[in-house]
Design a protein around this nucleic acid. Structure first.
Length: 473
RNA sequence: GUCCCCAUCGUCUAGUCUGGCCUAGGACGCCGGCCUUUCAAGCCGGCAACACGGGUUCGAAUCCCGUUGGGGACACCA
């Protein structure tokens, strides 16, 4: 058994998006499962569109979702000699020829063919010219086979057959000396020993063009697997229109990387009815047999749900760590940092069932982190009324006198006050909640008090009592 | 236009290869209820799909053909 070697080969012409991450993920899972190698290759042969910034964003995005690569990142621009060398080999073998048709001419002919409804294919006029001393504007074309068929035994799609007479003589070396995509992939995939090419569906029709090149160069042909595309809600290809484009935008929106991975892997792959998978399980269970052939629509609501699941079930310590930058951003950083060891985890536990993203959690955290709060007007009007002040005061006194400021002790005190004043839970709970948090919704009251500590609890109770007294009944 | 891929609830999907266990299961969302100190979470229930037409077969979501629909590719982009 030879070692499985797969690669992710993005072109750095933009940011790493959801679709790219999914492709990378499927490659990575397969590599990990097969104990093979995952290789990262940057396809930057398009000089005009590639940017260093994009490369950095791609690396950062992959790191964020935890897709670590074993080799690379290789950059095609650093491997130019290799492509030229192999291109010349094809020329010497007479499997490639110089073409002096200008880009403008080609474009014009293509347009004409299109208008006439003819096949848009290079007419091969330079094929038999036998140009050996090309001018500087010449490009090198691969002599594609015109007879027979090329058959792909695709890992996902199954058997796909293409007629060779439809194949174009592709340019492999541009007149500027740079290789084109279809040629550089072949050379790299072969030289890097790629055994399985797992890529987007949009490359399916490139495959019959590439296979003859592998063969002409006497390289072993890898196996191919073509993943369906991800679509937006309108069933068109996913793009900026459908929301955040860079994977890093999801980080900034408060998603956990493992949630994004979990959501993405389920977009096209399944394991029975299971929805949530640990990374370990994913590696164990992943297989191309259960990868869907059809395209999938990206559904933000479900991703939010997955994220909420992870927030709830993850180690609070980790969630607390991930929450930090969001607290900073919400202007709560300094105060949060001043809290005692373990406090933030406690906050996470109190809030995690109530929020779906870290951004939401940070927003919700304000009353617990801050020293002073603003009480919502409507909440005060409804719950902080003069008639509740006796019970409120009594409770404040009890809290002040408590030997131990704990959940159990607070609850006991609260119940006793309820008893003394003949109140039901809800009648006192809401006023206390509003007093303590300024809002009508919060975690359990006694958790809230523990989070606030005795000092802030008392201070807020007193403020609330004053406010209730002053209110018009 | 030519070639290629695809087709189960609104969405992600199980089931399709190896027809019968499918009066089609799960999940998200939506609606209703329960629980309850609020809001959530949780639990229970509901709505909701085999694109269409022909075959093959005792029997088809499952196999075959066609139609329709969707997507992709046809560059000196990747």
């Amino acid at each position: 058994m030879t070692e499985v070697r797969v690669r992710f080969a993005p072109s750095p012409t933009g940011f790493l998006h959801i679709g790219g991450v999914r492709t990378a993920l499927f490659n990575w899972l397969f590599a990990r499962r097969e104990r093979g190698k995952f290789i990262l290759r940057i396809e930057d042969t398009d000089q005009s569109r590639s940017t260093e910034e994009s490369i950095q964003a791609i690396l950062e995005g992959l790191r964020w979702v935890g897709l670590d690569w074993d080799e690379g990142p290789f950059r095609q621009t650093a491997r130019m000699d290799l492509y030229r060398q192999h291109a010349m080999k094809l020329f010497e073998q007479r499997q490639a020829y110089w073409c002096v048709c200008s880009a403008e001419e080609l474009e014009a002919r293509r347009k004409e063919a299109q208008a006439k409804g003819l096949q848009q294919k290079y007419d091969g006029r330079c094929r038999e010219r036998g140009i050996t001393n090309p001018s500087s504007e010449a490009a090198l074309r691969f002599k594609a086979p015109q007879e027979g068929q090329t058959v792909i035994d695709d890992l996902i799609k199954g058997r796909v057959v293409f007629e060779n007479n439809l194949l174009d003589d592709l340019i492999i070396l541009r007149s500027n000396g740079y290789p084109t995509y279809n040629f550089s992939v072949v050379v790299d995939d072969a030289l890097m020993g790629i055994t399985h090419v797992i890529r987007g569906d949009d490359h399916l029709t490139n495959t019959p063009r590439q296979i003859p090149m592998f063969q002409a160069l006497a390289f072993a042909v890898p196996r191919f697997g073509h993943l369906s595309m991800i679509m937006g809600s309108d069933k068109t290809r996913l793009s900026k229109r459908h929301g955040a484009t860079s994977i890093l935008a999801y980080r900034d929106m408060g998603y956990l990387p493992e949630a994004v991975v979990n959501y993405l892997v389920r977009l096209g792959w399944s394991h029975g009815d299971q929805e949530i998978f640990s990374r370990r399980e994913l590696i164990e269970k992943f297989s191309f047999e259960h990868v869907q052939k059809s395209s999938a629509v990206f559904n933000p609501e479900k991703m939010v749900w997955v994220n909420a699941e992870y927030i709830k079930s993850n180690d609070p310590k980790r969630v607390a760590t991930l929450l930090q930058p969001f607290l900073e951003q919400a202007g709560l950083g300094a105060e949060a940092n001043a809290m005692p060891e373990g406090w933030l985890e406690q906050l996470v536990v109190a809030l995690r069932e109530r929020c779906k993203t870290l951004v939401e959690m940070a927003t919700m955290a304000a009353p617990y982190v801050q020293r002073d709060i603003v009480i919502e007007e409507d909440a005060a009007k409804k719950h902080l009324t003069p008639d509740i002040t006796p019970a409120l005061s009594r409770f404040a006194d009890r809290v002040a006198a408590l030997a131990e400021f704990s959940h159990a002790a607070l609850e006991k005190a609260f119940m006793e006050v309820l008893d003394e004043h003949g109140l039901r839970m809800g009648q006192l709970a809401q006023p206390v909640r509003v007093t303590l948090t300024g809002r009508t919704a919060s975690p359990g009251l006694f958790e809230v008090m523990e989070l606030l500590g005795r000092e802030r609890t008392l201070a807020r109770l007193r403020t609330g009592i004053e406010r209730a007294k002053a209110a018009r009944p």
